[in-house]
Amino acid sequence: MIKVVIFDVDGVLLDSWEANIKFYQLLLEESGYNVPSRKEIEGVFHLPMMDAIRQLTQETSDVRVREVWEMGRGRKVRYPTELLKIPEHSRDVVDTLDKTYRLAIVTSRVRLGVEDYFTISGLKQYFTVVVSYEDYTHPKPHPEPLLLALKKLKVKAGEAVYIGDSETDIQAAKAANTKIIVYSARPLQGADLNVESFLEIPEAIAELNRS
């Protein structure tokens, strides 16, 4: 029986596509690297910022990668929050789910990035546990972020479902033994269920409980 619904942020609770493109372009330009194209950024969209920087810059120095990451994490380069969007119906669905389940977040975003979501959505009070990039050693697809959330929530893996949008999310959920619902216009193999709209999520969770 599902007791906890855990959400990813980028691509699920937050449409951050345009904001992240602009941010990486500003960050790398300010750091002295070539400005990456939209296509190049698309290839790293689901990676944690540290890994995205390493791949976009092709930098071999871990020290230098961390320096650039610290610039981004500390917002020494402005993050264009005005480009962030909240998916349609997501506020109402979060409110609905909160009446039946405990809600949490597991994300590759840094803490400031999660606060961006809370600021524009006004939904911080609904999420009892938040696990962000600074909280773990091994990012998704490793199960550590989800396992940490389960520990904080004091629930078993079989009592949780993760709402993600990528292959990485599926792999992490499978490794942690939680259920996984993919929210995406493009169905992904390996998910327990795929949905295209937030309005489908409550019934999808109910279906998992019936199975």
Rank of each mutant, 00 (worst) to 15 (best):
M1K: 14
V4M: 07
V4T: 15
V5A: 14
F7M: 02
V9L: 15
D10L: 05
G11T: 02
L14G: 06
L14Y: 07
D15I: 09
S16T: 06
W17E: 12
K22H: 05
F23G: 07
Q25H: 00
L26C: 05
L28N: 06
L28V: 08
L28Q: 01
S31C: 08
N34E: 13
V35A: 02
K39V: 15
K39H: 14
I41D: 02
E42Y: 12
G43F: 03
G43Q: 15
L47T: 05
D51N: 12
R54W: 04
Q55F: 09
Q55D: 10
Q55A: 10
Q55W: 02
E59N: 05
D62R: 00
R64Y: 10
E67G: 04
E70V: 07
R78G: 08
T81H: 02
T81W: 03
T81P: 00
L83T: 00
L84I: 06
H89M: 03
R91V: 15
R91S: 09
D92F: 11
V93Y: 01
T96C: 07
T96H: 11
L97T: 10
L97W: 07
D98Q: 12
Y101K: 06
R102P: 03
V106K: 03
V106N: 06
S108M: 11
R109I: 00
R111G: 11
D116K: 10
Y117T: 00
T119N: 13
T119H: 14
I120C: 02
L123W: 01
Y126Q: 11
F127C: 08
T128R: 13
V129S: 01
Y133E: 15
D135T: 01
D135A: 02
P139T: 10
E144P: 06
E144R: 09
L146R: 04
A149I: 09
L150M: 04
K154G: 03
K154M: 12
A157S: 15
E159S: 00
E159G: 07
Y162I: 00
I163R: 04
D165H: 08
S166T: 13
I170T: 01
A173M: 03
S184Y: 13
A185Q: 14
G190T: 01
D192S: 00
V195F: 00
S197F: 14
F198I: 06
E200R: 08
P202D: 03
A204S: 14
I205K: 09
